[in-house]
């Protein structure tokens, strides 16, 4: 089964932590975001909304650490060339503890030959954007193509982090599909009405 891969400066976070503490292979518990409970000595007074709306683990991508800022990638199979697909995901802007200054964050998504990006988020120093929902529309050009998420952040080294969770790609039904459903439902209703009249 194919899944995600990366060689970039991207990290797995367990739910409810805001730090890599407890991750299977964390970063020596050193990577912590401003606003996390760990940042405040364990008391959750900073109200860091650790969990995305989809819950569970999430990924943090450093968008300003060249040359280690690299995408997280997955090959998506089962596509139909020429078919329309809708990508949805949750993302957030955060800043690593220990650094000061405003940052900007965005998530750039490439699916096959198309590249789209979220709007750029202007994050105050020590801020957290909260989780945001993003929706993007793509047209497949092959049965199998690469989906990648690349964090885009400024300035270098502060560092601007983009968080990611709840990634989904679903086929957008062709115009004929809803028509077929309506046709079928109408037909069933007509038969039911006719049967009722005959009784």
């Amino acid at each position: 089964m194919t899944s995600w891969s990366t060689t970039g400066y991207n990290f797995l976070f367990l739910p409810g932590t805001g730090t890599t503490t407890g991750a299977k292979t964390g970063f020596n518990n050193q990577l912590i975001f401003w606003g996390s409970s760990a940042q405040n000595g364990g008391a959750s007074t900073f109200n860091f909304p650790n969990n995305s709306p989809s819950g569970g683990n999430f990924i943090a991508l450093d968008g300003g650490y060249s040359p280690n800022t690299k995408a997280i990638i997955q090959t998506v199979d089962g596509l139909v060339a020429g078919g329309d697909y809708q990508l949805t995901f949750y993302w957030a802007a955060a800043q690593q503890k220990g650094f000061n200054g405003a940052t900007t964050e965005a998530m750039q998504v490439t699916f096959g030959a198309q590249t789209l990006s979220t709007s750029t988020y202007n994050l105050p120093s020590h801020g957290f954007s909260g989780w945001m929902s993003a929706t993007m529309d793509f047209t497949a050009t092959a049965a199998s193509q690469t989906l990648s998420f690349l964090a885009k952040g400024t300035p270098e080294g502060l560092p601007p982090f983009s968080l990611l969770d709840g990634v989904s790609v679903v086929a957008v039904p062709e115009a004929s599909t809803p028509m077929m459903i309506v046709l079928g439902m109408t037909g069933l209703l007509m038969i039911r009405r006719r049967s009722a009249q005959c009784e």
Binding site: W4, L12, A23, S54, G55, G78, L79, S168, P173, M179
Partner: peptide
Amino acid sequence: GLCGSGMGQNLVTNGDFETIGIAGYSAQIG
């Protein structure tokens, strides 16, 4: 209409990142 287009099926594997770490974080995430 309901099934022919694979409507509603998520084509992304592990889109919630839940199995990373179980299968091996270093291998999965690079």
